[in-house]
Amino acid sequence: MPFHRLPAAVLVGVLAATLPCICAAQQDTQKEIERYRQLLAEGNPADLFEARGEELWKTPRGPKKASLEQCDLGLGAGVLKGAFAQLPRYFADTDRVQDLESRLVTCRVTLQGIDPAEATRNPFSAPGRPSDMEALASFVAGQSRGMKLAAPLRHEKELEAFRVGEQLFYRRAGPHDFACVSCHGENGKRIRLQELPKLTDPHDAQKIFTTWPAYRVSQGSVRTMQHRLYDCYWQMRHPQMDYTSEASIALEVFMAKYANSGEIQAPGLKR
């Protein structure tokens, strides 16, 4: 008898018999992943990036032979503690909304006299080619660890960035019709075994947004929020997103609105 013609009661019985085993297998997989995460969390290699970032922060460099210690990350020149917790934000001197990495580039250019192209030349490390940006971002983020995210979203341009980010979040394009919302619009979903946050849900957003930059075991390096977005668009079959582009910052502002009041746990640790 073809399977689909079996009486409904038998089908229900078959389903009832197979479901517990499917669920148990899923739970085991989930448990294994949790155990793996715990093992990883006992020592976060991001510590090394923070230490290198601190050294980069304090060492005079560039044509102006200046350190970054007078960098204004939004709370005034030289204020590190808690600055990351209030990004992205509008900066009057550049007249635009900036995230951590965009602002670090500004400081390297204005304080140290580094050429803008040079300052953004190597944002994402590769084996044997470490990135100063990854180290600096780790260091500055770590200075807000334990604080609550409080991206301002008050200035007219911050509000505009939110609206633009919102449009981009839902914008479907390319050969696969993907948008951010394709993967981040529902609770409890996965790609393969990787859990996906619903980024418009404060519960998920507060937990996830606050863990970037993060050391990624699969990549053997700290990766920044800029890299996270670049990597998402890669998977979405878009061309490479420009480093610190306006779209990337608009998306960060959009995400920050839902992540606000989440506790900063950056640099985090991920698969």
Binding site: Q167, L168, A247, S248
Partner: peptide, 13 residues
């Protein structure tokens, strides 16, 4: 917002 987002998108890739 949509028109602005389209412009921002074009300038970001």
């Amino acid at each position: 917002a949509r028109a602005r987002a389209e412009q921002v998108f074009r300038e970001s890739f």
